[in-house]
């Protein structure tokens, strides 16, 4: 799903300045970055994630005309604060101050972008049935091509599975994967000599 960043601000200097700053950063938003001065002009697409960076002044209008129709899971909101707040500075990711550095601002936007990514941690350590099957064959010394032939799938698919297995387990080498497979009883060491495997 796409993520778009919309800057909504009454001041062209601020909006365009912020846009420039993001374009010159490592965020790689390309054409997913837009500026609006009037929230009612925005045309929101379903199945798109939005990050709104907007002033206090326009937030209410944005909410009333647009956000009311949107699923909350699909947008993030960053408040742009242009007035000096006497000593009471927000440091959280939900607001940007005009006197912050490019890095600070970019980090906040990146944080918002990343918050849309699926939680990776929840799946770490748990392999799917197919992945377990492939892990077993890898541990028994099969090359990707052999595994592809045995399971009647393409080598490319096997390689993708292997990449996912390594990512989930944090183990890259074949002998390391074999150790994991033995520890988790994915392969039976009663029938096989460990010396041959590792």
């Amino acid at each position: 799903m796409n993520t778009r960043v919309l800057i909504i601000h009454q001041s062209a200097i601020i909006a365009e300045g912020l846009q420039k700053l993001m374009q010159n950063s490592s965020l790689q938003l390309h054409d997913h970055l837009r500026i609006y001065m009037d929230p009612s002009e925005i045309n929101l697409h379903p199945a798109t994630n939005y990050i709104f960076i907007t002033s206090d002044l326009l937030f209410q209008k944005l909410y009333n005309t647009q956000l009311i129709h949107l699923n909350m899971a699909n947008y993030r909101f960053i408040k742009l604060i242009s007035e000096a707040q006497d000593g009471n500075k927000f440091t959280g990711n939900e607001s940007i101050h005009l006197d912050e550095t490019q890095n600070q601002i970019v980090d906040k936007i990146r944080f918002a972008v990343n918050s849309f990514l699926p939680e990776k941690t929840s799946v770490i350590g748990t392999l799917t049935e197919r992945e377990t099957e492939i892990l077993k064959l890898v541990s028994l010394g099969n090359a990707s091509k052999e595994i592809a032939d045995k399971l009647n799938i393409s080598t490319h698919t096997v390689i993708t599975h292997r990449k996912n297995i390594t990512e989930k387990l944090g183990i890259k080498s074949i002998s390391g994967l074999t150790v994991y497979a033995i520890l988790n009883k994915i392969i039976d060491t009663n029938e096989l000599s460990i010396d041959d495997l590792i």
């Binding site: 944090g170 183990i171 080498s173 390391g176 150790v179 988790n184």
Partner: peptide, 14 residues
């Protein structure tokens, strides 16, 4: 990568 694997086996799986 083997060294990293060794650490992970100890930390996560053993």
């Amino acid at each position: 990568s083997k060294l990293l694997d060794l650490k992970n086996i100890i930390i996560k799986y053993l």
